[in-house]
Design a binder for these strands. Structure first.
Length: 587
DNA sequence: AAATGTTTACTATGGT
DNA sequence: ACCATAGTAAACATTT
């Protein structure tokens, strides 16, 4: 089987979105609101699912009181209950063991109490189908970073997203078009040509090495600043590479190659990077940037300055895998030399910049991109400078070159976890999903200052919060900062797990729920680390590497399931997003 | 033919 | 208000 074009596990639901539009606001924007597939109302049985989402009033039907009226006054216990209830009632869409089950199956008295209060409301919300609080760019970035080789084909990206987020198993035409658009439109994504011996459809996609951590601000909905490659525009137009005439790259952005020998190796300034690539036409989105002719051999990589019609070659002369998918998808194995890791990748980029015009042969070290060697790889990622916070092209060019060359790391940029936040989160999330381990999920999101991370939400550095965590049943706990957001996160993760664990039994209230709800301190939640991520379950024989390619999640559980057509045909409701913290509610 | 990739246009939203 | 970013639709081109 070709790694490059795996068959989709998910039947594409080709929604005729061109016909079903109605207004979100002004009649021009398509909306999911009120756009329900007729089938969604039929075969749900006892399961009152998401499909019956109400355009109005949705804010009041959440399990844990995400509605404004319930923002306060939630005890930690209620958090547990809410999480458990959400897990038990959440009507996973994939025909899980819960499907059609009456509410209250296998729940504890506490849950029953909670359910009693809410049963009449017929929890109609299936969170697994709520839109995840990630932008497409974020999703793509996470997908790519979750890949051991930091690159994926389009279909792999599709599948990665669908594996993790059931929401995207529907209306594939719509969001996949957006994915393709995002890939093409955003400079932070670059194509990697296939090797000659790996024919297939489509290129690999990778992250521009200068893109850095675009979401360092912790917001996965919106980058602080769009990454713009300073590549020289192709051919005539000075801004032909600009997608918007308003997005101007100053002429002086095209600068000579930097004098520093290792422009990207240690500096943490994106400015350097821009200058570095400004003259090297790093962006290969241009059709002129034909696939490389320098396909490396299996054991050595030949990086050659590619001269195209633009005068320079692709930045990413990353060889496509020359072997079958074994290496790429099972990173626990010895890495394929022709399938370089990110570290290799960046090393070669250095060569690219420092030895332009000359071929560089680089032996590819054996580097298994598991969580165990994340830290080892970090050094190379230091060149993946954050681009989001200070990459305003209109300002950074005024920064003296000497400043740009400073080779020091400050703040979070020294934190390998931060640099790897996406990767770590993606892999850890996948791990947790696989093992139904909420703790691992929480840990995954504790890597970075993610708004939904446990650490962020609980603000563990705050002594008061620490007190709450150590005394979770303290009355004042309800005053804990961002408790509601924390509840939301709990709910989100639990539902995400449920959706992805298929036939997994409902989590035990005595087990994961209390942990996840109140135990950031001293709990697995708080012990976020590579190890905790890589070993989310003691019974697991796998490590993070096992999940590093989401494409190969053993989703047999889901695959074995019958997917009700009403779920496949579900027309998501924009109001669903309101259930995710940080999501934009429908107007 | 279908998948993939590019581009344009438009709207919504958030930040300043 | 302005601008940047993001999402969606669609037309079109390219590739397999």
């Amino acid at each position: 089987m070709m790694l490059s074009s795996p068959p989709s596990k998910y039947q594409p639901f080709q929604q005729s979105y061109a016909t079903g539009m109605n207004n979100m606001t002004n009649g021009m924007q398509p909306s999911y609101v009120n756009q329900m597939n007729p089938m969604s109302l039929t075969a749900a049985g006892n399961q009152v699912g998401f499909n019956q989402a109400l355009p109005q009033g949705y804010g009041g039907v959440s399990f844990n009181g995400m509605g404004t009226s319930a923002m306060n006054g939630h005890s930690p216990h209620s958090v547990q209950i809410a999480a458990a209830a959400a897990a038990a009632v959440g009507s996973p869409p994939m025909g899980t063991a819960y499907a059609g089950m009456p509410t209250g199956v296998g729940i504890t008295p506490n849950m029953a109490l909670m359910l009693n209060r809410r049963t009449e409301k017929q929890y109609r919300r299936n969170y697994t189908h709520a839109k995840p609080p990630y932008s497409y760019i974020s999703l793509i970035t996470m997908a790519l970073q979750s890949s051991p080789n930091k690159m994926m084909t389009l279909s792999e990206i599709y599948n990665w997203i669908m594996d993790l987020f059931p929401f995207y198993r529907q209306n594939q035409q719509r969001w996949q078009n957006s994915i393709r658009h995002s890939l093409s439109f955003n400079d932070c994504f670059v194509k990697v040509p296939r090797s000659a011996d790996k024919p297939g459809k489509g290129s690999y996609w990778s992250l521009h090495p200068d893109a850095g951590n675009m979401f360092e601000n912790g917001c996965y909905l919106r980058r602080q600043k769009r990454f713009k490659s300073n590549k020289k525009s192709k051919g005539a137009g000075p801004s032909s590479d600009e997608h918007s005439p308003l997005e101007l790259v100053p002429n002086d952005a095209v600068s000579p190659p930097p004098s520093m020998s290792n422009p990207g190796s240690t500096h943490n300034s994106p400015h350097n990077s821009h200058e570095t690539y400004a003259d090297s036409d790093t962006d290969n989105k241009s059709p002129d940037l034909a696939p490389s002719t320098a396909i490396p051999s299996h054991d050595q990589l030949q990086y050659t300055q590619q001269h195209t019609s633009l005068g320079h070659g692709m930045l990413h002369q990353i060889p496509a895998p020359t072997h079958d998918n074994s290496s790429a998808n099972h990173p626990s194995q010895t890495s394929n030399p022709a399938y370089p890791s990110q570290a290799d990748h960046n090393d070669k980029l250095q060569h690219h910049h420092t030895q332009q015009q000359s071929a560089v042969e680089v032996s590819s070290p054996s580097n298994t991109p598991t969580s165990e060697n994340i830290a080892l790889n970090t050094h190379s990622l230091h060149e993946l400078v954050p681009a989001g916070d200070k990459t305003d092209e209109r300002s950074h060019h005024s920064i003296p070159h000497s400043m740009n060359q400073e080779h020091h790391l400050v703040g979070h940029e020294q934190d390998p976890h931060h640099l790897y936040s996406h990767y770590a989160q993606a892999t850890a999330y996948a791990a947790a999903v696989q093992h139904n381990s909420f703790a691992a999920v929480a840990a995954a999101h504790s890597f970075a200052p993610h708004p939904f991370s446990i650490s962020s939400l609980m603000n563990v550095s705050d002594p008061q919060q620490q007190h709450y965590q150590q005394h979770p049943h303290h009355q004042s706990y309800t005053q804990a900062k961002d408790l509601r957001a924390y509840q939301d996160a709990v709910q989100y993760y639990n539902n995400g797990m449920n959706s992805l664990t298929g036939l997994m039994p409902p989590p035990s209230v005595n087990d994961t729920i209390p942990q996840c709800s109140i135990a950031p301190s001293g709990s697995p939640v708080n012990s976020a680390s590579s190890s905790s991520v890589s070993t989310p379950s003691p019974s697991s024989s796998s490590s993070a590497s096992h999940y590093s390619s989401a494409l190969h999640y053993p989703l047999h559980q889901q695959q074995q399931l019958h997917i009700p057509s009403d779920h496949l045909n579900h027309q998501p409701d924009h109001t669903e997003s309101a259930y995710y913290p940080g999501c934009v509610p429908a107007s």
